[in-house]
Design a protein around this nucleic acid. Structure first.
Lengths: 354, 354
DNA sequence: GTGAAAGCGCTAACAC
DNA sequence: GTGTTAGCGCTTTCAC
């Protein structure tokens, strides 16, 4: 170490100057730091330090899709905000790791294998997505948000099925008997389409699956039994897609009297479609959103929606993961179900008289 | 290396199995990889590899404020989106490094010093902010977005002064003679306040400073000279703050006939304030935004605004920085001024007759 | 196609 | 308080 030589001390002492100020005469420390500055020494090399210490002071968050999508989804951004807040609070840096493209393979494997992290947060991945295996093979602590649920791996999310059921029941209790669903993508392929209600198929995203199951559970508890839920699967979570979905669903006869959207973004698009079709909300059509984002409060009319805080869930993930990297994992951390709540506003009401 | 021993080869061969598949009999490679899997060997340790190679395959983006603010600012998110897209395209991971709190010191120093990165993108920092010094001391390539402008360090941004001047000139040409400004924070302290136009003070953020200068330049070229620009400095870049700012500014007598906001977010808030005060836009009041975000197109009325693409600027930063980490810096990369354009929509018009 | 040797830069034990 | 020694795990010559 050239700095050490310049001052005439050992490398240990230089190291101490940076890491254990107490173990050093203040004057000497000052002398070392000054010499370092003069020699252009930028301080201990982080990679070397990490190697030696076996700790990097950073965690990663893994996405199975291109970051372009991630940053365009307000809820993903909320989650990131919570994650970032949580990591910062623990003096940890956040790394963002993602598949380059939507199919979730390309490049992500090597990015993931090379990422210098103490642990990983996994953002909703399909059950047998290759990245799940790769993440586990990294042999670092994991926390999973939303999907999949893995044995022994801490999980953070909400009870999507119960929440979906509550949303649908709200509509059924208002008297609706013809509901349709604007659904998130079923899998990473992201292909917008009107799903044949007869053979819906099984979404590979657990969250989407659970929500559909919840909607269905509510419907099937009713007598007379409402028709199968007409479902439109969007490709992207934004108002435009919600608009398109609502237009498609509202073409059916009999026209659905209520729309269950899996996000406020989609619900806002549905409101726009209703306006376009001269349907008054909630008089002619009820719309339920999901998340209780800012949009739910400012839309016209304000949305009935399932409230959850992705921000809090992000913080929770960060806290859990960082604890795990310190070897602190309690059994009760394995399943963290965050609270949710059905918030009723003016976008839902009784169905129009027949 | 235990894997090497298990297969009966040298560490070199194992390394080759991972890094140079060609230099190896395929059968042997298979045998090695299988053994690795069985032994639970997670592949080459990234920290060790980075140390050895002198490359980490990751860059950092540095913020001078808490990430909670960053992720709540749509334009910062757009920038991140571009940055993420750009890094992913170059097989690089993005790290997010930030001061824990608004004063930009706490914790950020050690986070920054420890971050394992090949380079840093700096997001608008005041001229003599401590993080600027710390970033330079890291001795890795830097790219700066927005502020400050540093000798020999690549800079990405737009000509804020010219754009601001164009925005103000647009209003002046329409006949407005009483303009007021809803300004971004002057410095990292983030304290909302109505600034005394007589002694505005000098914003430490270059971008804010340049825009104010541009507004003023336009005003002072006019005869008769309009009054000093009444200015409200917001604490946070969101519609609520814009609303508050507009209310404060519109209390003045004579009431300004046009508002120059430094973001669409703020402008949208101003529109809400106008509605509240029963001022029709643009009949009674003109409003100009900045950025041409989605909000500018969907607001009522749609906003006249200064269009720029933070997404593109983010991509540019990523590309420039990654090139720099490969030692490729061309002189013409030192100053990258991105395009901007004044987009006129329905939020601006002639001032009301006296 | 494979191996031996060296060293990336650092810090934790331990001795003085 | 300070120094010596060892080794974190890897990859890269270079020789065979």
């Amino acid at each position: 170490m050239t700095v050490a030589r310049a001052v005439g001390v050992s490398a240990t002492t230089v190291s101490n100057a940076y890491n254990r100020p107490g173990k050093l005469a203040p004057a000497l420390r000052e002398r070392i730091l000054r010499a370092a500055r003069e020699l252009g020494y930028p301080g201990p090399n982080p990679a070397a330090r990490s190697l030696r210490r076996g700790r990097t002071g950073s965690i990663g968050v893994l996405f199975g899709e291109a970051l372009t999508y991630v940053f365009q989804d307000p809820m993903a951004v909320e989650f990131l905000r919570g994650l970032a807040e949580g990591t910062a609070r623990h003096n940890t840096v956040l790394q963002i790791i993602a598949a380059l493209d939507a199919d979730g393979q390309e490049g992500a494997a090597s990015l993931l294998a090379n990422a210098i992290v103490d642990g990983l947060v996994v953002w909703s991945l399909p059950e047998r997505h290759p990245l799940v295996r790769l993440a586990r093979e990294r042999n670092v602590p994991l926390v999973i948000h939303g999907s999949p649920r893995l044995n022994g791996v801490p999980f953070v999310g909400i009870d999507d099925r119960a929440a979906a059921q509550a949303a649908a029941e709200h509509l059924l209790q208002l008297g609706h008997r013809s509901l349709a669903v604007i659904s998130h993508p079923f899998g990473p392929a992201r292909h917008a389409r009107h799903r044949d209600p007869g053979k819906l198929g099984r979404p590979s995203y657990r969250v989407t699956r659970e929500r559909l199951a919840g909607y269905r559970a509510a419907a099937s508890a009713i007598n007379p039994f409402p028709a199968a839920l007409d479902t439109y699967e969007v490709a992207v979570n934004n108002p435009d897609e919600g608009h398109r979905a609502a237009r498609a669903l509202l073409r059916a006869t009999p026209r659905p009297t209520a729309l269950l959207a899996m996000s406020d973004q989609l619900a806002v698009g549905a409101l726009a479609a209703a306006r376009e079709l001269d349907l008054r909300v909630p008089h002619d059509l009820s719309v339920v959103g999901w998340d209780d984002s800012a949009a739910a409060r400012t839309s016209d009319p304000p949305l009935t929606t399932v409230r959850q805080s992705l921000y809090e869930q992000g913080r929770t993930c960060a806290g859990l993961l960082i604890a795990a990297t310190h070897g602190e994992v309690a059994a009760h951390d394995l399943l963290h179900l965050a609270p949710w709540q059905l918030v009723t506003r003016e976008s839902t009401g009784s169905p129009p008289p027949k």
